[in-house]
């Protein structure tokens, strides 16, 4: 089994506090390689450079929102395999449906707990085979 602690994460959220929270929670789970982006456009540019294994993204962001980022990732042959976990305050049924149809790997509504984040990552890793 591949060493999952070597996985590289990209955390995307326009609120630096939220990026910091997710970074710290990932650190607690043993994941030390974490990069950040403040909106979907910056994130997509970073992803196209390669080297990122998992994306954690908010929905509401300036320049490019999380749903558009997800759709862009799924439309890019080089990126479409990437797991994308949405962490967002958007919690209406139509949002969940839109994210599922766009290919989200998981969906967490804010406010969330460390246990929820851990559980969703475990599901993603199972599918990744790590």
């Amino acid at each position: 089994m591949a060493d999952r602690t070597a996985l590289k994460f990209l955390v995307v959220d326009d609120f630096s506090t939220m990026r910091r929270i997710v970074r710290n929670l990932l650190k607690e789970l043993g994941f030390l390689h974490v990069e950040e982006a403040e909106d979907g456009a910056v994130a997509l540019a970073r992803l196209k450079h390669g080297g990122i294994d998992v994306v954690v993204s908010d929905w509401n962001m300036p320049n490019m929102d999380g749903l558009t980022l997800l759709q862009s990732v799924r439309a890019d042959p080089a990126l479409k395999h990437l797991p994308v976990l949405m962490i967002t305050a958007e919690a209406k049924k139509e949002n969940i449906i839109a994210a599922a149809q766009a290919g989200a790997s998981g969906y967490i509504v804010k406010p969330f707990t460390a246990a929820t984040l851990h559980e969703k990552f475990e599901k993603i890793f199972e599918r990744m085979g790590v």
């Binding site: 710290n24 929670l25 804010k110 406010p111």
Partner: peptide, 14 residues
């Protein structure tokens, strides 16, 4: 850890 997670209020409040 719980204290850190509680800071989510800043995102939602914002």
């Amino acid at each position: 850890t719980n204290i850190m997670v509680a800071q989510e209020f800043q995102d939602l409040a914002g």
